[in-house]
Write a protein that binds this DNA or RNA. Sequence first.
DNA 1: ATGAAAGCGCTAACAT
DNA 2: ATGTTAGCGCTTTCAT
Lengths: 359, 359
Amino acid sequence: MISQEKDPGTPATPDAPVGTSRAHPVTLREVAEAAGVSTATVSLVINKKKNARIAEETRERVKTAIRTLGYRPNAMAKTLVSGTSKFIGLVADGVATTPFAGQIIHGAQDEAWKHGYALLIANTEGNLDLENDAINMMLEYKVRGILYSTWFHRTTDIPETLREADFVLVNCFSPVPGAARAVVPDEAQGGQSATEILIRGGHRRIAFINATTPAPARDGRLEGYRAALEAAGIAFDPDLVLEAYPDQEGGYGATAELLKRGVSAVYCYNDRMAMGLYDGLREQGLSIPGDIAVVGFDNQEVIAAHLRPPLSTVSLPHYELGAAGVRLLLGLDEAPVDSALKIECPAIERASVAVPSKA
Amino acid sequence: MISQEKDPGTPATPDAPVGTSRAHPVTLREVAEAAGVSTATVSLVINKKKNARIAEETRERVKTAIRTLGYRPNAMAKTLVSGTSKFIGLVADGVATTPFAGQIIHGAQDEAWKHGYALLIANTEGNLDLENDAINMMLEYKVRGILYSTWFHRTTDIPETLREADFVLVNCFSPVPGAARAVVPDEAQGGQSATEILIRGGHRRIAFINATTPAPARDGRLEGYRAALEAAGIAFDPDLVLEAYPDQEGGYGATAELLKRGVSAVYCYNDRMAMGLYDGLREQGLSIPGDIAVVGFDNQEVIAAHLRPPLSTVSLPHYELGAAGVRLLLGLDEAPVDSALKIECPAIERASVAVPSKA
DNA sequence: ATGAAAGCGCTAACAT
DNA sequence: ATGTTAGCGCTTTCAT
């Protein structure tokens, strides 16, 4: 029973593109009626099906009707038919909260978009109930898959519900090897790059102020430091590895101990620490990089680029983590079988390390 | 034709919730069959319809079937029927890119979630084609409405496509009064609060280093400065208003000029400027707040909280902007008819302004 | 208290 | 080259 006879000849506004009226969305059926063809034909035209031969004249008629009526496809209906949506979910424990980790969202969004997917995000602030609700919601919306991300690099448990979806861990990994695809920053390579900046600057006695807080970053950044020294034929001296809480206060507080070591350069666990160290060194009347060269880690733009002198550091590739997560999910990139895919942490050289004269 | 006889008694894993298998999503019809009722009944149970009287026994049977089968509703099908989804779109020209503006996403997400909506985001990086595609996509997904946001407070044109949706401008506004609902930070109040911190600190000769770049912030922050002075009975002295490019260099570079004015306190257009000024003052051997008290604007956490001394400033309420945008969209908050809804910029007092002794 | 059936907007065989 | 038709999974009268 067709409810009421349609009256396609007399739209509210004569020929201006309607649909701008938010009354009753124009449907494919209406387009078909207006163009005097079947819905199937309209569908074929819209989806530019290759092997569907439609008369050029018909095609035009349909296109005109679409334009005149201001038709807009209903993605929900489409999805219902196909069974899977063009959504990718991003569950974050705080990336939206944290300034620089927000780039994970950005990278995921760009990459998803590139492949025709839209990003559905949920910030759970670490709340497990919220997290569960979020995953359920995404599942109900038949997302193509879920990116499960953390705002700092760490291990994570995999929520039961998450397993119902195709998923990828971003900036975190399962303690169980091979339990899930994952993408993380290459901390060791980053630590090595950071140290190499100093070595290239001609330094041999290089201190490392590591964090006191256990984390993959803590291990990896130390590992990279040692690797760089070894590659340069510099003996590792445990005395040159200090530890402090990884923030400004920590860096500031480590100044005295550091100076006792008689080093010419310091690699700090992160930029915030380096920022504190700047203050400490300045108080001692020491100049950077003249007396002491400094490199950080993280490339927290607001800090690193704007300290005086600007801080050499190593970048946490948040954007790339998000993008790579999407590629892993869509099967465009291959993930290592037993471990996480490691993304390079690029070195950013600035004025806190002097370039040796080419003599 | 029911494909194969279901065998609800023998799921792969005896009694654990199934559905964990990602084979063929369980449908409502299957639940109905398993429970020996009609789909209508299952629907009623699931949606806890008030006026539907279902026998307690039946209800239980349905619930059990749902659990056993690991049923999960298909949100797409639901939406198809209802005509409108539980999505709110967020179109951003760069909030995901910019560290602190990311809070807009966060606020919008939290508030949307609170009302049962999920956030669909698109970062357009200012690219108009991308923007258009994003809006179209959202329209196709039948979003409840769209938040159109900018990473810094400014005027904006309203894209044609956007008008097809219910929308709210966030952190931006139309030059045409009454053209659209909008929510922006209250720059004038912020400027006034910033200045008041200094006044309460006992200062009378207070400089303002404004930005050279035209923006609502530039006008509003100056307006607030004047309002605060007037309220305190301090005559406005145009000589005390300097201008510089709103970054570190600008602040650093303004130091000399500033010192000529013989002021005891400075209110900077933003935190980055204040950061540069710190360096400038320190070079002159001046201490903060002893010799000069400083306040900033924006509360860029990484900068403000961690300078030495920590910087008093005024917070840009990004989180609240996002949240208020959602409330405006859903009609939960009333928007002023002819102008944007202004959100308070709360003062954050730190050690860069000394508290006068209560003598 | 529950079931039957229509239909949301679209796609994809299958006809013609 | 185009039309007919049967669903996709769900909600919602309307019967019973």
